Simulated scan of single mutants.
Amino acid sequence: MWRDRRILDLFSIDHPILLAPMAGPVLSDMAIAVARAGGLGALPSALLSHEQTRAEMAKIRAATEAPINMNFFCHVPPAYDEGREAAWRETLKPYYSELGVDPAEPIPVSNRTPFDEALCQTVEELRPEVVSFHFGLPPAPLVARVKASGAKVIASATTVREAIWLEERGCDAVIAQGFEAGGHRGIFLSEHADQQVGTMALVPQVADAVNVPVIAAGGIADGRGIAAALALGASAAQIGTAYLFCPEAKLVAPHRAALKVAWDDDTVLTRVFTGRPARGIANRVIREVGAMSDLPPQFPLAGGALMPLRGKAEPAGSGDFTPMWSGQAMRLGREMPAAELTRTLVAETQERLRQIA
Rank of each mutant, 00 (worst) to 15 (best):
R6K: 13
R6W: 15
D9K: 13
M22F: 15
L27K: 14
V34C: 01
A35P: 00
P44C: 06
L47M: 15
A55T: 09
A63K: 08
T64W: 13
A66G: 04
A66E: 14
C74N: 09
V76K: 15
D81Q: 12
A86W: 12
W88E: 00
R89Y: 03
P94E: 10
Y96M: 03
S97M: 11
F115K: 04
E117Y: 11
S132C: 11
A140N: 02
K147Q: 11
A151H: 11
R161E: 13
E162A: 10
A163F: 03
L166A: 04
E167F: 14
R169S: 02
C171T: 09
G178T: 13
H184I: 09
R185G: 03
F188P: 00
H192S: 06
D194M: 08
Q195G: 05
V197Q: 01
G198K: 03
A201Y: 07
V206W: 02
A207S: 15
A207E: 12
D208N: 15
V210T: 04
N211G: 11
N211L: 12
P213N: 10
A216R: 01
A217S: 10
I226L: 05
A227L: 04
A234N: 03
S235H: 09
A242T: 02
L244W: 01
C246T: 10
E248K: 02
V252N: 04
A253N: 07
A253S: 05
P254E: 08
A257N: 09
V261F: 09
D265A: 13
V268C: 10
R276E: 08
G280D: 00
A282L: 14
R284K: 15
I286H: 13
A291W: 07
P297D: 07
F299C: 03
P300L: 11
A305G: 08
A316G: 01
M336T: 08
V346Q: 00
A347L: 06
E348H: 01
T349V: 07
E351F: 12
R352S: 05
